[in-house]
Computed example of a mutant assay.
Amino acid sequence: MTVLVQTKNEQAAIGICLEGLSAFDEVIVVDSNSTDRTVEVALSHGAEVVNFTWNGEYPKKKQWQIEHLRTRHPWLLFIDADESPSAQLVDSIRNFVNSDPNASAAQLRLEYHFAGRALRRGHRVKKTVLLHRDRSRFEPIDDLNIPGMGELEGHYQPTCDGPVVTLRGLLRHDDVDPVRTWFDRHNRYSDWEAALRLQSERRRGNREQRSRQGRLFQRVPFKPLVFFVYSYVLRGGVLDGRAGFDYAFALASYYWQIGLKYRELRDGRTSGEVAT
């Protein structure tokens, strides 16, 4: 089983992440030209480090790894430096890759932490990040001229040639950086989402690669309000206390940003250009 850890200036988190991956026999840190001690810390924990420099074209970072890294195993687990699997998830992954020869990928459920607090209820996230390299891929969605994501594949699912299953256990996601970095990232992401929404051809391609839940949510009117009610009330985020409110409100604000930026682009009230 090969784990591919995605990093760029993650010196504060990478050590904790790698300590949680001791059950896997191949761990590769794929670093995007970090300027801090990320690489030094990764090497000190015994990880192999591969540098990735994006050339501004496809493939982007994850698909580049599928195409170019020579790994010991066909199953690849993509995780971020602020993520680590629970013991139950490690067992589930091991059993899955050894017993399901026809599957293409697996979804992992997140134990999401926001502003230092674990969220037990509210909006739940699944990520399709355990991929068989011969049966899964990140298709180009024609977003090279759209700001916001850069070298990263955006918020869409990989294309899989066979069944995708959901595993038991949780992938802990706990960002150690200040909460302002969450808002910085989502400000960029909303630029990307708004531009894709404006360009109908690109949006269709992107929508096809979203999860079923994501495709349904794309069609919902008044998304910020609907999401807040769904996450905080219907899904019980209120029971997570202040953290549940903060997360539901922050994500609702993210969807509001996307809508506002989309309308600005649509109405030509920005100097930025969107390629056609």
Results as ranks from 00 to 15, higher is better:
residue 242 R to W: 11
residue 197 R to W: 15
residue 134 D to H: 13
residue 166 T to R: 05
residue 78 F to S: 00
residue 4 L to T: 06
residue 46 G to E: 02
residue 207 R to P: 00
residue 47 A to V: 10
residue 30 V to K: 06
residue 177 D to Y: 13
residue 16 I to R: 15
residue 113 H to C: 07
residue 51 N to H: 08
residue 130 L to A: 03
residue 178 P to S: 11
residue 244 G to A: 02
residue 20 G to Y: 07
residue 188 R to H: 12
residue 94 R to I: 12
residue 148 G to K: 03
residue 20 G to F: 07
residue 172 R to F: 11
residue 261 K to Q: 14
residue 66 I to P: 00
residue 222 F to N: 15
residue 216 L to A: 13
residue 61 K to L: 10
residue 155 H to F: 12
residue 18 L to A: 04
residue 267 D to T: 13
residue 150 G to K: 06
residue 264 E to G: 09
residue 77 L to N: 07
residue 155 H to A: 14
residue 105 A to G: 10
residue 189 Y to P: 04
residue 20 G to D: 00
residue 192 W to P: 13
residue 109 R to T: 15
residue 159 T to M: 10
residue 94 R to A: 14
residue 213 Q to L: 11
residue 168 R to C: 11
residue 177 D to R: 15
residue 193 E to P: 01
residue 84 S to E: 02
residue 230 Y to D: 13
residue 259 G to V: 02
residue 236 G to S: 14
residue 164 V to K: 03
residue 46 G to M: 08
residue 69 L to R: 01
residue 215 R to T: 04
residue 118 A to D: 02
residue 175 D to R: 13
residue 68 H to I: 07
residue 92 S to N: 12
residue 214 G to V: 12
residue 136 S to M: 13
residue 144 L to G: 06
residue 227 F to W: 11
residue 268 G to C: 01
residue 3 V to W: 11
residue 26 E to N: 01
